[in-house]
Every structure is written in structure tokens, then in C-alpha cells.
């Protein structure tokens, strides 16, 4: 094996290690007979398992270190706040002060909660201001931080002006400005998830912003239905129906488009969460569409619709979060689609 000479001057010739030839005898025999395949993880998959190899079934990706409560909560609260800002501005412009107040308080409260969750999830919470150290369009988290840095104070100013009844003009301006940023706050979180190597998040990048937009509307509508005076909730009812439709439709489309990596959405815990989200959102929207008869019944109906819509939206975010983590933990979802892509490319 060694083609080198050890001399007084040191090693001459080829380095033995570098140029050793492994098992070189039988020229040209293909070794396609590989028997290795990933181990299943207890569960029997519904579709016939695509054959693939893996390193002892271990994941290829490092799964997100994020805490479900913090990050799924952040997504939910961000959506609630963003869409509430729309209801706030609309309520204010259309002379529905009760609706506007609930929405303004909702937006300010939700965005504070979401910021709290974000900071809590940092490994070094004391360094949260480092988020504003750079402005980086390639980082959705950086863009989101700047967005929130602009948006959160606006919602608070709007809420404060409304509650205190002072600085009405400034308050109205803040409300309008928050409504301009709100939709971005509600949808950028989809980019936050998609801009990762996590298969079930990345592959949904086309539809996920629409799912989140719909989910944000149904949450904001739910809050307004549950808390605003009954006479002023007509826009919230309409928003609930439109939002639920957008959310459910976009989600179905997304799953159909994603192929294999849609599987984590339809298995185990994430599936239960998403199924619950579907039922709650659809049920909440149906309840919202019916104003109900009589005062007491109407009120109860609206509260039930609101609670269903809010929990539905939260369940959707947790479902999407956990499905992504599950897709990162199973090498199947990394290997199989990439193999298919390679095969398609090389023909």
C-alpha cells in the first residue's frame, strides 16, 4: 500500500494515507444491492413507504430549538394583533367606537404578548436589542423585528389615545398607520417559518402567508365578536366568514401542493390540532354568520363564535409549528423529496 519512502530528509513520494486505495480489486461492479433503509419510528405510514437510506434513521436537520408555546403563541398573537388593527381603523372610520376600542386594545395587548413571547424564547433575553443591530432583508426575523419596532408603539399609542380620550387626532393617525402595517405583521410570520430548511414549512411558502392571513382575520374577528357591543359587530362577522374561508381554502391547497411533506400535517398530534382548528374555525364562522334571535341568545352565540374562532386560530398555529418540527425530525422528509428532485434533474 505504501508507495512512499521514509528517508532521513523526511517522507518522500505519495502520502500513504491520502493515496491508499480502498478495496480495489473488482473493477466496475456496481454496489446497488444496498439493503439499508431508514427505520420507521413505530408508526405504520398510511402510504407505501418510499425507499430511502439514512444514517441509522437519525434526522439530517437539527430541529428548531424554539419552544412551542413561545413561537406558536408569537405567531398567533402577531396575527391577532395585525388583523385587529384593520378592525380598529375600520371601526373608527365607520363610526363604530365600541368595535374600534376592542380592536385597538386587542392589537396593543396581543402585540405586547407576542413581543414578550419572542424575548422569552431568546437564549439570551438580555440581548434582545441586538435584533436591531442590523437591517437585513435576507433575515425575516430581522425584518420582523423592525416591523414590530414600528408597529407596536403605534398600536399602543392608538389604544392609549382611545382609552384616555386625549390626543384624538394623533390617536386616529396611529390607528390608521397601524392598520397599514398590520397586514404585514400578520403575514410576515409565514415567511419566518418558510425561510428554513424544515421541509413542511419551507415547501408551503406559497400558501402559508394566505393561511396565516386568514387565520389572523378569524382570530381578530373572534375577539371582536366576543367583546364588542353586539350592534357594531357586523364587519367582524363578515371578516370571520371571509377569514375562515381564506384560511381553510389556502390550507387545503397548500397540502395538495406539498406532496410527501404534507404528511406531517396529517399524522399524530399536529393532525389532531389541525383537525380541531378546522372544526373550530368553520363552526365559529358559521355561528358568526348567524346573528341569532333575541338579545341573550344573540350575545351567547357571538361569544361562542368568538371563542371558537380564537381557539381555532391558535390551534392552527400550534399544529403548523409541531408539524414542521416533526418533519425536521424524520430524515424521510429531507431525503425523499431531494432524491426525487435529483432524479428529475438527471432524468
Amino acid at each position: 500500500m505504501s508507495e512512499s519512502d521514509v528517508t532521513r530528509g523526511g517522507l518522500r513520494g505519495a502520502r500513504p494515507g491520502r493515496d491508499a486505495v480502498t478495496g480495489a480489486q473488482d473493477a466496475g461492479r456496481s454496489r446497488r444491492g444496498r439493503r439499508r433503509r431508514g427505520r420507521g419510528r413505530g408508526e405504520q405510514p398510511m402510504v407505501p413507504e418510499a425507499r430511502f437510506s439514512s444514517y441509522y434513521g437519525r434526522p439530517i436537520l437539527n430541529k428548531p430549538t424554539w419552544q412551542a408555546l413561545d413561537i406558536a403563541g408569537y405567531l398567533f398573537l402577531g396575527g391577532l394583533a395585525g388583523a385587529s388593527s384593520l378592525l380598529a381603523a375600520g371601526g373608527q372610520a365607520s363610526g363604530r367606537p365600541g368595535l374600534a376600542r376592542v380592536a385597538k386594545l386587542g392589537a396593543a395587548g396581543a402585540i405586547s404578548g407576542s413581543l414578550g413571547a419572542l424575548v422569552h424564547d431568546l437564549g439570551r433575553p438580555a440581548r434582545f436589542l441586538n435584533m436591531l443591530r442590523v437591517f437585513k432583508p435576507t433575515s425575516p426575523m430581522s425584518m420582523g423585528s423592525w416591523l414590530l419596532a414600528g408597529y407596536a408603539p403605534l398600536t399602543m399609542a392608538a389604544a392609549a389615545a382611545d382609552v384616555t380620550g386625549r390626543a384624538r387626532v394623533a390617536g386616529a393617525g396611529a390607528t390608521a398607520a397601524a392598520a397599514c402595517l398590520g397586514p404585514a405583521v400578520a403575514t410576515y410570520t409565514a415567511v419566518l417559518l418558510s425561510d428554513t430548511a424544515v421541509p413542511s414549512w419551507h415547501e408551503g411558502y406559497r400558501e402559508l402567508p394566505f393561511v396565516f392571513a386568514g387565520s389572523a382575520s378569524s382570530a381578530a374577528a373572534g375577539l371582536a365578536l366576543a367583546c364588542a357591543p353586539a350592534g357594531q359587530t357586523a364587519p367582524a362577522r363578515r371578516m370571520a366568514v371571509l377569514g375562515a374561508g381564506l384560511e381553510l381554502g389556502a390550507f387545503q391547497l397548500m397540502k395538495r401542493r406539498m406532496g410527501l411533506v404534507a404528511e406531517p400535517f396529517e399524522q399524530g398530534g399536529p393532525h389532531r390540532l389541525l383537525r380541531a382548528a378546522e372544526l373550530l374555525t368553520a363552526g365559529g364562522a358559521a355561528l358568526a354568520a348567524y346573528p341569532g334571535t333575541g338579545r341573550r341568545r344573540g350575545r351567547a352565540c357571538a361569544v361562542a363564535a368568538g371563542v371558537a374562532l380564537l381557539t381555532g386560530s391558535a390551534a392552527l398555529r400550534f399544529g403548523v409549528f409541531h408539524a414542521g418540527v416533526a418533519s425536521a425530525e424524520d430524515p424521510r422528509y429531507t431525503v425523499v423529496p431531494q432524491r426525487e428532485r435529483l432524479r428529475a434533474r438527471t432524468g
Binding site: 375600520g90 365607520s94 411558502y205 394566505f210 396565516f212 389572523a216 363578515r238
Partner: peptide, 20 residues
């Protein structure tokens, strides 16, 4: 991704307007 999110944000705003 940003393009899709921008369209989704505009849709959300439109949805808000439609609600009123």
C-alpha cells in the same frame, strides 16, 4: 416568499375593507 407574503398582506387588507 416575500412576494407571496406581500400579496397575502394586500389580500388581508382587502379582506378588511370588504368586511366594512
Amino acid at each position: 416568499m416575500w412576494r407571496h407574503a406581500a400579496v397575502a398582506a394586500v389580500s388581508l387588507a382587502a379582506l378588511g375593507v370588504a368586511s366594512f
